[in-house]
Each structure stands twice: as structure tokens, then as C-alpha cells.
Amino acid sequence: MPATNNVGFDTLNLQSKLSGYLLDPAHPQNQTKANWFSQALGFDQSNWQDLASQLYFDPATAVPTKTTQYGQTYEQVIPITGANGKTIDTTFVFMQDNSGTVRLVTGIDQEMNAMRENDTFVLSKPVEGTVIGEQRTLVLSVGTVVTVVLVFGDPTAPTAYEVEAFLPEGDVYALATVEAHDVGYTTRRLQALRKRVAIGAFVVGTNRPERIQLEATNFLAELRH
């Protein structure tokens, strides 16, 4: 059964949330999530308890996303070990109401977070890269916008990505390898977070990489405070 040692975490809704929603392939709004949990981790309505037992809420690592009159929502990345033995970092959304009680809201299948070739995202930690054509190394800083040029591992749950970044200060391109668990905010997710958090002005689709990098860096800095 679900662990109950998480301060404020109310586990009473987990059966209905998991068996009746996230793992229900017949739910009209949730076929893709249920299919992913089944195919990627081996979870379905028959073994929802095994998934529930691994869920937790940690305010020290959860990322706040939206504040309303009803409380604060968070995204929590949890390494989930499936019935098939695979372990995949999976994002879950929790709501902490004004009384301090925390409840599970939903889960995000990792395929929604998985990058595909030509996708872009923002580095959340420094990564060593190599300048194309010069064979010299440098460090790509936090906030650098990169484009996926190769995907390593299972496309539904990649292990790493080869990425390319344009560095306007040197007018050069660099390649780097980023582990999947180190992927920062995707442009799609940044856009969604901008709407939810109502801060920053991240520009998607601009042809000015230096503006993207500056605004992404500012966005991440504001989001952490």
C-alpha cells in the first residue's frame, strides 16, 4: 500500500486516481497515459498498488508551478521501477491545499517529456561541449538553448541526447551529450510554465538564439526563487 511517511501526503485518493484514471485505457481523456504506463513500466489497473507504493511528495525537490486561491501545485520527478523491472524518472503533479494537505493530481507519461530529433530544450546544468570545426572544448552554461540532433536508447524513454547549440558570442556551434535525467525545460514546457506561473517572456520560434538564451536564463533564475 502507499507509503504514509510523507508529511501532509493524503494517499486516500490514490486508488481512484491511478486505477480509475492514469491506468485506465478506457478513460476518454487518458488513453495515451495508460498505454505509456503499461508499455513502458508494465503498470495497469491490476497492479496500481505497486505504483502507488512508490509515490511520495518532497517539498525540498518538488517544483512549484501554479498558485491559486485553493493552494499550490507542484511537479515531482520520481524514479519509478515498473513491474517489468525498468526504472524511469516520471513526473507527477501534486496539489498542496491551504491546510497543508497534499494530494496527487495527475501523472505525466515520460513519452510526453521525451525529446525527439529537432526538439529544443534549455540546459538545467553546465555541460561540456565541443566546438564544431575547431575540436576545442568548452562548457555550455545553464540556460543555453540546445537542439536535439540524436536520441540514444528507447525513443519512448531515452537515456541521453546528442545536442547542438549556437553560441552567438563566438558565432560558433557546439555539440554535447546530455543525459536524459539532466534535460531542462523544453520549449513546449517553458511555454506552458509561462502561462501557469505568469513570469518571464520566453520566445518560441524566434530566429534570435541570443534572445532565447537570455530569456531562458532569466526564466530559470526567476523560477528558482
Rank of each mutant, 00 (worst) to 15 (best):
L175E: 10
A174Y: 12
L193V: 01
P158V: 00
L190Q: 07
A192D: 12
A160K: 07
E169V: 04
D182I: 01
Q191L: 11
E169M: 05
T159C: 03
R189E: 15
T187H: 14
L193E: 08
R188S: 08
P168D: 14
R189C: 00
A174N: 07
L190E: 07
D182P: 00
T159E: 13
D182T: 06
A192T: 13
A174C: 10
K195F: 15
T186S: 12
G170M: 05
H181R: 14
G170N: 03
D171S: 14
T159Q: 14
E169R: 03
F166G: 05
Y173H: 10
A180E: 15
V178Q: 09
L175I: 02
G184E: 01
P168K: 13
G184S: 07
L167A: 06
A165Q: 09
D171H: 06
K195G: 12
E179L: 11
Q191M: 08
F166V: 03
A180C: 02
V163Y: 01
F166C: 06
D171W: 04
Y185M: 06
A160F: 00
G184F: 02
R188Q: 10
H181Q: 13
L167C: 03
V178P: 14
D171Y: 06
P158Y: 01
G184T: 05
R188K: 12
D182C: 02
A176V: 05
T159S: 14
L190T: 05
E179D: 15
D182A: 12
E179S: 12
Q191E: 13
A192H: 13
A176Q: 11
A165V: 07
A165S: 11
A165Y: 08
E179A: 14
D182F: 00
R194T: 14
H181D: 15
E162F: 00
G170W: 02
G184K: 10
Q191C: 03
E162S: 09
A174E: 09
E164P: 04
Y185S: 04
L190R: 06
Y173F: 11
T177Y: 08
V163W: 01
A180Q: 15
A174L: 10
T187W: 12
T187P: 00
L190I: 09
A165K: 05
E162C: 01
Y185D: 03
V178S: 07
Q191R: 06
Y161H: 06
D182R: 03
E179P: 00
H181K: 15
Q191T: 09
T159R: 12
E162T: 07
T159G: 15
T177K: 08
Y173Q: 08
L175R: 13
A180N: 13
L167V: 10
K195T: 12
K195I: 11
A174V: 07
R194L: 03
L190D: 07
A160P: 01
A176F: 00
Q191N: 10
P168Q: 11
K195M: 11
L193Q: 05
E179C: 01
T177H: 07
K195R: 07
R189G: 13
A174K: 09
